[in-house]
Design a protein around this nucleic acid. Structure first.
Lengths: 154, 154
DNA sequence: TTCACGATGAGAATCGTTGTCAAATGCGAT
DNA sequence: ATCGCATTTGACAACGATTCTCATCGTGAA
């Protein structure tokens, strides 16, 4: 079977377990992690099932999905506290940030295009203070690469 | 493996070709696509080399990277036009949007935490006008594994 | 030109994710 | 409670993007 209608989904113990595991954390978790969690807590659910349900939930708007920097799909239940991150692309340091500005902007823009039930994800990356410093130290002897500094639109 | 940022890199014809192919388009392109392009235009470059260089460029902040909805890493040279999308999670319709508000917010927030060379990605998803309507009527035929996506200008 | 070492290429190895299909299960009707 | 039947599930194969390996090549410096 190919598509599954969002209207009729059968409740199963597996689906419930997955939903529960998901809402047990406010963090983004990968399908594999959730599968491992369930296995660890004695709930035996097939990996494919975890993937299928997570996808279905995402399609139905029950959970948020983003791809982690290494390409893994990570999920988080929708209702949880919403925030964003600034991640250092050199050392991986992540700082949580929140702000109404983006939330409102996203909402307004989407609405302007007639979209409803809008959700958004935003990730920022750059160099943390420490890495910014160390990068200046190891500065090259030769002429700098053609790397332009201006990156963020302003 | 480890971050080599700041280290000098040798100029090679492959690296140049990749940079050129990248800046030839304002769109996000995958490593595979770039590899195919190069091959198509007679420039023989190994796939692994394309990956390596793209990554290095991203690490050095010369290009932006995001993951496409299906998990592929897609690259775009930095200086090009920056915008975001609102994607319909039911039919895949994608609308381009731009706005200074987010850009400035991201810049400000990151800077407040001492981050430099900050870049960001933001994706919004919801139900497009059509799908919002049809959802109220009956069940919707949802997109297959690969989302059919049309891009409209907004 | 020669040397030392980073860069490249071809293909194997990874690993997250999806497809396959027979068996199990939920639901409405009986 | 039971039957019929479509939806789900689970085990595992299949896939595909990305990374790794390593012998060989190319580049900057002497």
């Amino acid at each position: 079977m190919t598509d599954q209608a969002g209207t009729e989904r059968r409740p199963t113990r597996q689906r419930a377990a997955i939903a529960r595991a998901l809402s047990a954390s406010a963090e983004f978790r990968s399908a594999q992690e959730i599968h491992a969690d369930l296995a660890g807590s004695g709930t035996r659910v097939g990996l494919a099932t975890v993937y299928r349900n997570l996808q279905a939930m995402a399609t139905d708007g029950e959970v948020d999905v983003i791809r982690s920097p290494d390409g893994e799909a990570v999920y988080r239940s929708c209702s949880t506290d919403h925030h964003h991150h600034v991640v250092c692309r050199s050392c991986g340091l992540a700082v949580e940030v929140t702000g109404d500005a983006v939330e409102r902007w996203a909402e307004a823009v989407a609405a302007a295009h007639g979209f409803t039930q809008v959700r958004h994800t935003m990730e920022m990356e750059g160099l943390c203070p420490a890495c910014t410093a160390s990068r200046h130290r190891s500065k090259v002897v030769r002429r700098p690469t053609q790397a332009p500094r201006r990156v963020v639109d302003g």
